[in-house]
Every structure is written in structure tokens, then in C-alpha cells.
Design a protein around this nucleic acid. Structure first.
Length: 425
RNA sequence: GGAGAGAUGGCCGAGUGGUCUAAGGCGCACGCCUGGAGAGCGUGUAUACGCCAAAAGCGUAUCGAGGGUUCGAAUCCCUCUCUCUCCGCCA
């Protein structure tokens, strides 16, 4: 959520930058400012009314103490009248505030000045790439066939137990999952991230805090009986640790990492992109989160990008890093780098990580602030997060790219975690 | 799931309708004192919104959350959430 102060002081700029995300803010922004003027006027009147009521109430106490009952009763009548007015005013104030919040929640985050123009993924800019795309042998298979051939992932069994998009990993497949999770967590903690194991369900406040609600309502599994949401990413519970918190600037940056399963309804997804591990309802992911001083959040973003890049190099996967264009960015992000690995049997790039700076957009919703030494006033912190990494597509690429006629090779870095160097029959 | 007791500032804790502008203590910050430190003394110590060009200052709201009674609520009533104790169930 953008701050009202920023919108009021930089109206033209806000509208211009929103346009890069293909969001026409002309009407909604002026409506927000109009409502804000109205809100201030109402509040001023209401505050004055309440002040008068408070004054009279005190006076009545004094009058009764002095035994002046008739004067006290006259004051009561006056106060009752004011109370009626205040009731109407506070209802008006609430209506205006609700309307204003509703509109503010519709406005996406401003893209960073460096975000490229563009409407879709094809307009994203490749920043750099690494690794080598392998040449596969003639009988090379896509990962869903490899999974069956080596009996390491059973998609059909998942359908039986739950439904599509809930695969069952077994044997070396299951062990590979565990190895990847441990490898990622170790790599992250070695870089100074504190390991967190958060709840896998969150309440409504947390879902609002990081922006899953109201924007992505319908994409999360909702446990209606208790009002909880299954987390679509560890970002939600981990970032919300700091909801309604005022930090000291010396505590920044805060660096956290967490493994969680992620649950996504993926309503509206269909077709070839959902085959095999490409798109699931439940998948494993290790996330990194940073809470940083606004002056240094872009340094942190670059650091996180290099960090994730290091992981892909360790896994010896061919990758590229793309900077998302305005049209392909998420609602809440100010700048996003996506990481893609090349899936040699599917002949396409698969997104395995998304690293973003949200600046103060989430912090404003969450009231996540910090105080500078000597400052009286708290200011909004910046939040960042990234996948480090999401497992399914990494597994897809590992299986496909490392397949040989004699089995699937496990990259060196993973071998100590797996306890084997090859998946074969 | 059942019965009971609770939720007050950064922390502890007093407060059962009007001098609550929330006592007192701890912590923290600043000042005095000191060669220095400690002790002692003094001052200050939340958040949001609004008024004001801004600062200072002032106003409003906030004693778990939301509603209600009253001229007036931390205090009385209702609903909810959470915590603790006991019982039940349980990895």
C-alpha cells in the first residue's frame, strides 16, 4: 500500500510511474486525495465535538460535587445533543476511511525507475546468464517420464490421495527433496540468514500484511472453519513476524530464511505449462527474506540476486537472470529479478526464483517500522524476499539435464546431502 | 472439548464510575554531582490521526479486540480472541 503522504506530495509522479505497470491511476488517485480532504474535514469537526463533550463531562462532575444539580442537568442535555452529532460524524468518518482504504488497496506498488517498459514476459530484459545448456542423447525424456522410469515421483498416486498437482515423491525422489531443502538452508544460513520454521497456515491479518489479500483472494486455500489460509509462500508467515513492530536501525538488515511447503490453488491455470512438476498445488520452497533500511534496500536486492545465482552455479544448472518489465511485475513489487533454468528436454526456460524489493509497500500495510538513533519518529522499513530456491522446477531441470543412458547424475554439491551420486534402475 | 482465573505503558505492577492528566517500581535517555565509575539527585520516556508553513504546542483515539450502558468507563454489561490452572483427549 502506498502512503497517503507520498501520493499527496508526488501525485503526478505516482500516476506516471503507475503507467509503467499499465495501471491508469488518474481517476483513483484523485478520488483518494478528494476523500482524504473530506476525511480531514470530518475528523476536525469530530475531534472538536469530542473535546467539547469531554469538557462538559468534567464540568458536570464538578457541578454535582458542588451540589448544583440543575446546572448539571442542563449540561447533560447539551452533551447528549453533541453526542448525537458525534455519532453521525464518526459514522461518516468510518465510511470515508473505508472507501479510501478500499481504493488504496487497489493501487499497485510503484515500479523502480530502472524497470523496463513492456507488457509481457517477452519484454523482460536478460541481465546475465551462466552455465552450459547440455546436449542430450537421442532417447532423452522429459522429467515426467523420467520420474516414472526411475519410480521417484508418482503423479497418479497423488491424484488418488488428494488430486492433481499433489505429487508423491518416493525413494531417491523423496531423498532428493530433503537433500535440496537442507542444501539450500545450509547455503542460506552460511550467508547470515537466520533459519525459521514458521506456521504453514496464517490468519487474515497476516495475509493482508504481505498483500496476498485482498489481491489474490481465491489463490490461497482457505480453511474456513477456523479462518486460516494455507501459506502460498514462506514470505507470508516470515515477513509477518515483524508486523506491527518498531525496530532500531542498528538491527537492520534482518535476514531470515525458511523452508515451507507452499499451497496454491492456481485457479485458471491449464494446458501444457502444468505438466509434471511445472505447476503444482503443493510444492517445497526455501525462501529468503530481508528487512532493510530504505537507503540500502537496493544493495540488499543485488546481494540476494548474487546469492541465488551462487546456488544455481553450485547445482551446475544453465540459468539466466531477467529483470521483469512493468507489465510482468507483481502488484506489490518495485523491482523483480526472475531466475530461470533451462530445461533441456522441454526446450524451455523455467522460472525457479523471483527476487523482489517491495520497498515500503508491504511495510506500510504491516506497520513495520524502524527508528534511527535519536529520531523521535519511526519510518517504514523496506522488505525484500526471494526464492532460494523453489524445488519442483529445479528437480525437473536436474532430472532432464543430467540424464544419461545409464541414469541421472547428481551434481557434486548435492551428493553429500543425497548420499548417492546417481539415480538409476 | 468441559470448568475456573486472567489480559493495564519497553518490563513488573496498583487502580471496582468523576482530581486517571493511569500510582509506584524496574529499564532506558539526558543533566547535576565525581579525577573516573557507581551511588545519589533531577528531568524525560508510547502509537496513530488531526490543527499549524514547520517546530513548539494543542486536540482526538488507544488499558487484549469489537460493541453497549452513562453527561462521564481501565473500572459496569454483551460478543470475540488470546494466556494460565485443573479435567478429558492426544504425537
Amino acid at each position: 500500500m502506498l502512503t497517503l503522504k507520498y501520493i499527496r506530495e508526488n501525485t503526478e509522479e505516482v500516476i506516471r510511474r503507475l503507467a509503467i505497470k499499465h495501471f491508469d491511476g488518474t481517476v483513483v488517485i484523485s478520488k483518494i486525495i478528494e476523500l482524504d480532504d473530506k476525511r480531514k474535514a470530518i475528523q476536525l469537526q469530530l475531534d472538536n465535538n469530542l473535546a467539547e463533550q469531554n469538557r462538559i463531562a468534567k464540568e458536570i462532575g464538578k457541578l454535582f460535587a458542588e451540589g448544583k444539580a440543575s446546572e448539571a442537568n442542563a449540561a447533560k442535555a447539551k452533551s447528549t445533543e453533541l453526542k448525537e452529532q458525534s455519532k453521525i460524524l464518526s459514522q461518516e468518518l468510518k465510511d470515508v476511511e473505508d472507501e479510501q482504504t478500499k481504493l488504496l488497496l487497489q493501487v499497485p506498488n510503484l515500479p523502480h525507475e530502472s524497470v523496463p517498459q513492456g507488457v509481457s514476459a517477452s519484454d523482460n530484459v536478460v541481465v546475465r546468464s551462466g552455465g552450459t545448456i547440455p546436449t542430450l542423447h537421442d532417447e532423452a525424456l522429459p522429467h515426467w517420464d523420467l520420474a516414472t522410469k526411475y519410480n521417484i515421483i508418482d503423479f497418479e498416486l497423488g491424484v488418488k490421495i488428494t488430486g492433481s498437482g499433489f505429487p508423491v515423491y518416493r525413494g531417491k525422489g523423496a531423498k532428493l527433496q530433503r537433500a535440496l531443502i537442507n542444501f539450500f538452508l545450509d547455503y542460506n544460513t552460511a550467508a547470515g540468514y537466520e533459519e525459521i520454521e514458521p506456521p504453514h497456515m496464517v490468519n487474515e491479518d497476516s495475509a493482508y500484511g504481505t498483500g496476498q489479500l485482498p489481491d489474490k483472494d481465491g489463490q490461497m486455500y482457505h480453511v474456513t472453519l477456523d479462518g486460516f489460509y494455507m501459506i502460498p509462500t514462506a514470505e507470508v508467515p516470515v515477513t509477518n513476524i515483524y508486523r506491527d513492530v518498531i525496530l532500531h536501525s542498528s538491527m537492520l538488515p534482518i535476514k531470515l530464511t525458511a523452508y515451507t511447503p507452499c499451497f496454491r490453488r492456481e485457479a485458471g491455470s491449464y494446458g501444457k505449462d502444468v505438466r509434471g512438476l511445472n505447476r503444482l498445488h503443493q510444492f517445497d520452497k526455501v525462501e529468503i527474506v530481508q528487512i532493510q533500511h530504505p537507503d540500502r534496500s537496493y544493495e540488499s536486492l543485488e546481494e540476494m540476486v548474487s546469492h541465488v545465482e551462487g546456488l544455481l552455479q553450485e547445482l551446475e544448472l544453465p540459468y539466466r537472470i531477467v529483470k521483469l518489465c512493468g507489465g510482468d511485475m507483481s502488484f506489490t513489487s518495485a523491482l523483480t529479478y526472475d531466475f530461470e533454468v533451462f530445461s533441456a528436454a522441454q526446450h524451455k526456460w523455467l522460472e525457479v526464483s523471483s527476487v523482489s524489493n517491495f520497498e515500503s509497500f508491504q511495510a506500510n500495510r504491516m506497520m513495520l517500522r524502524f527508528k534511527e538513533e535519536g529520531d523521535k519518529k519511526a519510518q517504514l522499513a523496506h522488505t525484500l524476499n526471494g526464492s532460494s530456491l523453489a524445488l519442483p522446477r529445479i528437480v525437473a531441470a536436474l532430472l532432464e539435464n543430467n540424464q544419461t543412458p545409464h541414469g541421472i547424475k547428481i551434481p557434486k554439491a548435492l551428493q553429500p546431502y543425497c548420499g548417492f551420486d546417481k539415480i538409476d534402475i
